[in-house]
Design a protein around this nucleic acid. Structure first.
Lengths: 317, 317
DNA sequence: CTGAAAGCGCTTACAG
DNA sequence: CTGAAAGCGCTTACAG
């Protein structure tokens, strides 16, 4: 020890600006000398603040959320928070299980990708009164706060964009997720509303990946009429589809146009570069941090935060 | 409450087999009824066991470790452990910072991808006597336990393989990471030892990605002599290189062979399929779990666990 | 700006 | 198989 009470050390660690600078120096020297490491578990118990944020994602091996999650983890780390990362698959029981674990660890907040559909879990989360942030897709009735964009609007915008470029026979490759489903819904309703005929579609499993793009290209052969543009549920699918098309001697976009979704780095790097829809992961992360900070200070926050999206026009469509 | 002491509830929660089944039923009913959620922070403080495992990776947006990390998170979750995921970049200061956070949270173990080079941090980690597992690359002198494979051996094996296939002018595309460096070292020493001449090489930044593959292909034009095979530091680079080569009208592997590293899903899906080196992420995860369980029971574990690797011969080389 | 004291919710020998 | 009791290492009003 360096001549001060535990209370003062605690203050130094958590609000250094509040202790006298002479005291601060003594404490910091003592910490240096003894190699003292603060026990955050004890801090969590006493202060009711764990400095742990749970982030739940379906997977990380092949996830369109990774950029966003990475930006979030980095921002949280800068605020001296740590991230409990949990994997939920596309399976409700795992989601529930991981939420329970997070609650048991008394995390300060739970960040979810996608919307929780199970009503019982929504109830439980509300009751637990942790901060719950649903990200990526904008919830219509958020459990607590939702930061994201409208999948439906993104689908609509893509329909408008492709129509304005003169495409007439879109084919949709739709991953089996509620999110992709919504985008497809938005696309179709806008497309038909604007006078286009009902697009053809193919469903693929999640997580979507490059290989599905190749298969999706081959599946085009079964269509009664060939599309002039394929609207893919992810950039990976788009990439695989382009590679397979080119291997078959088809020129993209001249003979077949392609769009992706997510605006991953590879979309800009691919040859041809891939027209995609960008969601600004850093922006999502920033808004999440803003909510978290506001909550830490007991300030009010809007329940719905729309970060929008942008169609990025490139060579492929 | 349901007529029992806190001690008994604690036993029920942690070792259900040790309480009488009548008691167990009463407790579980009470838990159900009240919606009680165990406080793991208090448990950590009292029992000196946080059920938190820190996993440190350079990044997740584009990481060759993702499969392994995913397998590890899933396995840990099955054992009722949660994962604190921290991002270190390729920057020592962030590594140190995140290790300190993990220590402050009193994690039960720290899993590192790659080897910690900083001697002071190694010291600190040894002193903290948490379980420390260095994964992926096999450490020669592990801090505690290392689970992985020899990068040098992987490079050597690839050299042997390509030589046996008749290639004579390899060109290496090497990410600037100690790991890739080692593989390159192994490749070169084996190659020259077997009578080949010193391969040409190009260094690229980490994290490696598709776009670098395209650039790496173009950079071949500057070489005095054209290679017959390009040995890429990751499957992404290989994929980008193939796409660019094909766009230039070059046939792979007839006119130029290509190998990747990591055996990502896309390696098997690409057209042509990509010859790569597989590290079994599930195997790594399994061994990590074995170490963790052994430590929980105070059993001895070998400090070096070699999970090996396999060259996967496919169409591209 | 700092200290004394209570308390956060568990776990774990120790008894029985 | 179960309970009483101490203690884990902090934080936070409350005083001063």
């Amino acid at each position: 020890m360096a001549g001060v009470s535990p209370a003062t050390v605690s203050r130094y660690l958590n609000m250094p600006e509040i202790v006298a600078s002479a005291t601060a120096t003594k404490i910091s020297e003592a910490i240096e000398k003894t190699g003292y490491v603060q026990n955050l578990a004890a801090g969590a118990l006493a202060g009711n603040r764990s400095r742990l944020i749970a982030v739940l994602v379906p997977d990380i091996a092949q996830s369109i959320f990774n950029d966003t999650v990475e930006a979030m983890i980095e921002a949280l780390s800068r605020d001296r928070n740590s991230v409990m990362l949990a994997l939920t698959g596309s399976d409700n029981s795992r989601l529930v299980r991981e939420i329970n674990m997070a609650l048991a660890h008394r995390v300060d907040a739970i960040v979810l990708t996608g919307i929780v559909s199970d009503e019982e879990t929504r109830q439980k989360l509300r009751a637990a009164k942790v901060t719950v942030i649903e990200t990526w897709g904008l919830a219509e009735d958020p459990i607590d706060v939702s930061v994201g964009f409208s999948h439906t609007a993104a689908g609509e915008e893509l329909a408008r964009f492709l129509r304005s470029r003169g495409y007439r026979r879109p084919h949709l490759v739709v991953p089996r997720s509620p999110r992709a489903e919504r985008r497809a819904g938005g696309f179709i309703s806008r497309w038909t509303h604007d006078g286009g005929q009902e697009p053809t579609r193919l469903e693929v499993n999640v997580p979507s990946h490059f290989g599905q793009g190749r298969l999706s290209y081959r599946a085009l052969a079964d269509l009664p009429e060939q599309p002039d543009v394929v609207v893919c549920g992810s950039d990976w699918i788009a990439q695989g589809l382009i590679v397979e098309a080119q291997a078959a001697g088809i020129r993209v976009p001249d003979q077949l146009a392609v769009t992706g979704f997510g605006n991953l780095r590879l979309a800009g790097d691919m040859r041809p570069t891939i027209t995609s829809v960008d969601i600004d992961g850093a922006h999502v992360a920033r808004e999440v941090m803003r909510v978290l900070r506001a909550r830490a200070l007991d300030e009010k926050v809007e329940p719905l935060i729309d970060v929008g999206f942008r169609v990025i026009a490139r060579e492929s469509a």
